[in-house]
Measured scan of single mutants.
Amino acid sequence: GATAVSEWTEYKTADGKTYYYNNRTLESTWEKPQELK
């Protein structure tokens, strides 16, 4: 079936920290989303 993983994109900030952005909800988070675990 369809999965929600594709909504999240992993980015890195200029200082090398990783964060996650959800293209559907426009939410961003420092925590790894449940969908990616």
Score class of each variant (00 low, 15 high):
Gly1Trp: 12
Gly1Tyr: 11
Gly1Thr: 14
Ala2Met: 13
Ala2Thr: 13
Ala2Pro: 11
Ala2Trp: 10
Ala2Leu: 13
Ala2Phe: 12
Ala2Ile: 13
Thr3Asn: 12
Thr3Glu: 13
Thr3Phe: 11
Thr3Gly: 13
Thr3Lys: 05
Thr3Tyr: 05
Ala4Phe: 09
Ala4Tyr: 06
Ala4Arg: 08
Val5Gly: 12
Val5Ala: 14
Val5Asn: 11
Val5His: 11
Val5Tyr: 14
Ser6Gly: 11
Ser6Glu: 10
Ser6Arg: 08
Glu7Pro: 06
Glu7Gln: 06
Glu7Thr: 05
Glu7Val: 07
Trp8Gly: 00
Trp8Phe: 02
Thr9Arg: 12
Thr9Asp: 04
Thr9Ser: 11
Thr9Asn: 07
Thr9Tyr: 09
Glu10Arg: 04
Glu10Phe: 04
Glu10Gln: 08
Glu10Ala: 09
Glu10Thr: 09
Glu10Gly: 02
Glu10Ile: 11
Glu10His: 03
Lys12Pro: 02
Lys12His: 09
Lys12Ile: 12
Lys12Arg: 14
Lys12Leu: 10
Lys12Asp: 02
Lys12Glu: 05
Lys12Trp: 05
Lys12Met: 10
Thr13Tyr: 03
Thr13Met: 06
Thr13Asn: 09
Thr13Phe: 04
Thr13Gly: 08
Ala14Asp: 09
Ala14Phe: 04
Ala14Val: 11
Asp15Val: 03
Asp15Ala: 07
Asp15Lys: 05
Asp15Asn: 08
Asp15Trp: 06
Asp15Thr: 08
Asp15Gln: 07
Asp15Cys: 14
Gly16Met: 02
Gly16Ala: 02
Lys17His: 08
Lys17Leu: 10
Lys17Thr: 08
Thr18Met: 06
Thr18Tyr: 08
Thr18Gly: 02
Thr18Pro: 05
Thr18Leu: 09
Tyr20Gln: 00
Tyr20Leu: 01
Tyr20Pro: 00
Tyr20Thr: 00
Tyr20Phe: 06
Tyr21Leu: 09
Tyr21Ser: 03
Tyr21Gln: 06
Tyr21Phe: 15
Tyr21Lys: 07
Tyr21His: 06
Tyr21Pro: 00
Tyr21Val: 15
Asn22Gly: 00
Asn22Glu: 00
Asn22Arg: 01
Asn22Met: 00
Asn22Pro: 00
Asn22Phe: 01
Asn23Tyr: 09
Asn23Ile: 11
Asn23Thr: 13
Asn23Pro: 05
Asn23Met: 10
Arg24Asn: 09
Arg24Pro: 01
Thr25Tyr: 02
Thr25His: 01
Thr25Ser: 03
Thr25Asp: 02
Leu26His: 15
Leu26Trp: 07
Leu26Ile: 02
Leu26Val: 02
Leu26Gly: 15
Glu27Tyr: 04
Glu27Asn: 04
Glu27Ile: 07
Glu27Leu: 06
Ser28Ile: 15
Ser28Lys: 15
Ser28Gln: 13
Thr29Gly: 03
Thr29His: 05
Thr29Asn: 03
Thr29Arg: 10
Glu31His: 08
Glu31Ile: 11
Glu31Asn: 06
Lys32Pro: 07
Lys32His: 04
Pro33Met: 02
Pro33Gln: 02
Pro33Arg: 02
Pro33Phe: 03
Pro33Gly: 02
Pro33Trp: 03
Gln34Ser: 12
Gln34Ala: 15
Gln34Leu: 14
Gln34Trp: 12
Gln34Asn: 13
Gln34Arg: 08
Glu35Asn: 08
Glu35Ala: 10
Glu35Gln: 08
Leu36Ile: 08
Leu36Ala: 06
Lys37Tyr: 14
Lys37Asp: 14
Lys37Thr: 14
Lys37Ile: 15
Lys37Ala: 15
Lys37Gln: 14
Lys37Glu: 14
